[in-house]
């Protein structure tokens, strides 16, 4: 386990209590297979929620519906009061409010690190180039790799690439950050550097939803856990609840396997 020095569940003390994400009865099918079954939950501003569960449980699909990389087939999703529908203008608003970090980084290999970060602010937010570059340097500073700005993604280590991906998502100044298994594709020695960046982000009050199996990190940072299985939220509660007193058999079984 990493150091427990920082205050646990720091977000709780500062939270404003405003609903940031409202998910009501959301279902999703891939052909005959139902990936999400009537999922309902609410996430508040500055809350850090960790989602975990066995593979194929729908946890990835769940967070991908939150910025409409996947469309939900039933139910309602409200992001900061805006409903996710087929409406392109709404979608545009939501996409720039929700940042996403992928398991495979998905950096653009033909662009330099800096250009990866400045592209969206310039093209979507119409920031002048100088400002966008200034912003990129600040963010690279924040994730600890300002010296890599002019390199190409393929020249960086996996951990560095993922940190660039985080900086890239932050460049749109999102209110919410989604992390889809951000450390699963990394070599063990690089996991910590990425988690450190995420921890700093959580402490700064960012609303975060993280799919991860790094339970040490999760316990330390999260306000709330969601346990997914079979497309449903099987159990939710504080980290302490999960580590000391899980209720459901499936939760117990899964926790015993990964801890």
């Amino acid at each position: 386990m990493t150091s427990q020095q920082t205050q646990p569940a720091q977000g709780q003390t500062q939270r404003t209590g405003r609903d940031m994400i409202v998910v009501e009865g959301v279902s999703k099918w891939f052909d005959d297979f139902q990936a999400l079954r009537d999922v309902t939950t609410t996430m508040q501003e500055q809350e850090v929620v960790v989602v975990f569960g066995p593979s194929g449980s729908g946890k990835s699909t769940f967070i991908r519906t939150l910025n409409r990389l996947e469309q939900h087939d039933a139910g309602r999703i409200l992001i900061d009061g805006i409903e996710l529908t087929d409406d392109l203008a709404n979608l545009e608003a939501i996409r720039s409010e929700v940042g996403m970090v992928f398991q495979q980084f998905n950096l653009f290999p033909h662009l330099t690190v800096q250009r990866n970060i400045t592209l969206a602010p310039q093209k979507v937010r119409h920031l002048p180039q100088a400002e966008a570059e200034e912003l990129a340097m600040q963010l690279l500073e924040r994730v600890g790799i300002p010296e890599q700005a002019d390199k190409f993604p393929a020249q960086l280590s996996g951990g560095q690439q993922q940190r660039v991906a985080i900086a890239r998502a932050l460049a749109m100044q999102p209110k919410i950050m989604l992390f889809d298994e951000p450390t699963s594709a990394l070599d063990p020695e690089m996991i910590k550097e990425v988690l450190d960046v995420m921890r700093e982000l959580a402490e700064s009050g960012m609303t975060m939803i993280v799919v991860t199996h790094e339970m040490g990190f999760a316990r330390e940072v999260a306000d709330r856990f969601l346990f997914f299985d079979d497309g449903q939220i099987v159990e939710e509660g504080t980290p302490e609840h999960f580590f000391t007193d899980p209720q459901e058999d499936r939760t117990k079984l899964f926790l015993s396997q990964i801890l």
Binding site: N67, L69, E92, R95, S96, V98, G99, M100, F102, N106, L107, F108, L119, A120, K123, V124, A165, R168, A169, M172
Partner: peptide
């Protein structure tokens, strides 16, 4: 997907 998520059209 990454481009979509960043809000590029």
């Amino acid at each position: 997907e990454a481009a979509d998520a960043m809000g590029l059209n």
